Simulated assay, not measured.
Amino acid sequence: MAGEPQADCLFCKIVAGTVPATVVRETETTVAFRDINPQAPTHVLVIPRLHYPDAASLAAAEPNVTADVLREAGEIAAQEQVDEHGYRIVFNTGAGAGQTVFHAHAHVIGGRGLQWPPG
């Protein structure tokens, strides 16, 4: 069922505390933790506690939680001191876009120059 924890989801296991992660912030609706394969000096994932496979399905079902994820991304940027020089918030959707865990999540990336287009 949408929104319910999934037994085979890595991020649901992190939310439940059964898989370790370097958590940097938690709220009632979100958990933020360091990416295990960082692409920049600051690379933190912000996930909703609810399970939805991607950002679009989360936004359609839970717009307030989607706003919480974005607000927390901004808080992480400030906490990591990348907010003044610039940072990127990235939602990958689908395997072709690089999504490897199918639980909605935002990447907060900063601390180095970020060219456009990325890649």
Rank of each mutant, 00 (worst) to 15 (best):
residue 87 Y to F: 15
residue 84 E to A: 13
residue 79 Q to A: 15
residue 99 Q to R: 06
residue 98 G to I: 06
residue 90 V to L: 15
residue 91 F to D: 04
residue 103 H to N: 12
residue 72 E to C: 11
residue 105 H to N: 04
residue 87 Y to T: 00
residue 88 R to W: 04
residue 104 A to L: 05
residue 75 E to H: 14
residue 96 G to T: 05
residue 78 A to F: 01
residue 82 V to G: 00
residue 70 L to V: 15
residue 89 I to Y: 11
residue 77 A to E: 02
residue 82 V to C: 00
residue 74 G to T: 05
residue 70 L to I: 11
residue 89 I to A: 12
residue 102 F to H: 11
residue 89 I to G: 11
residue 92 N to H: 10
residue 85 H to N: 12
residue 90 V to E: 14
residue 97 A to N: 05
residue 87 Y to V: 01
residue 70 L to E: 12
residue 90 V to D: 10
residue 90 V to S: 13
residue 74 G to Y: 04
residue 85 H to Y: 06
residue 83 D to C: 01
residue 95 A to K: 14
residue 88 R to D: 02
residue 95 A to Q: 12
residue 101 V to L: 10
residue 83 D to P: 02
residue 76 I to A: 02
residue 96 G to P: 11
residue 91 F to L: 10
residue 84 E to C: 02
residue 98 G to D: 06
residue 103 H to Y: 13
residue 75 E to T: 12
residue 114 L to T: 11
residue 103 H to K: 10
residue 106 A to I: 05
residue 93 T to A: 11
residue 83 D to K: 03
residue 82 V to E: 00
residue 77 A to I: 01
residue 79 Q to L: 14
residue 94 G to R: 09
residue 103 H to W: 12
residue 86 G to T: 05
residue 110 G to C: 02
residue 92 N to Y: 07
residue 86 G to R: 06
residue 73 A to T: 09
residue 92 N to T: 07
residue 107 H to W: 05
residue 106 A to P: 13
residue 108 V to G: 09
residue 87 Y to G: 00
residue 102 F to E: 01
residue 70 L to Q: 15
residue 80 E to V: 02
residue 100 T to Y: 05
residue 80 E to C: 03
residue 76 I to R: 01
residue 111 G to C: 01
residue 73 A to E: 07
residue 104 A to W: 12
residue 109 I to C: 08
residue 86 G to H: 09
residue 86 G to L: 06
residue 89 I to K: 08
residue 71 R to D: 03
residue 103 H to T: 08
residue 78 A to I: 03
residue 69 V to I: 12
residue 84 E to P: 01
residue 81 Q to H: 13
residue 90 V to I: 15
residue 91 F to W: 15
residue 77 A to Y: 00
residue 72 E to F: 04
residue 111 G to I: 00
residue 85 H to A: 15
residue 99 Q to W: 07
residue 90 V to R: 12
residue 113 G to M: 06
residue 98 G to S: 09
residue 91 F to E: 05
residue 96 G to N: 12
residue 70 L to G: 10
residue 72 E to W: 08
residue 87 Y to Q: 01
residue 88 R to M: 06
residue 97 A to G: 07
residue 109 I to N: 05
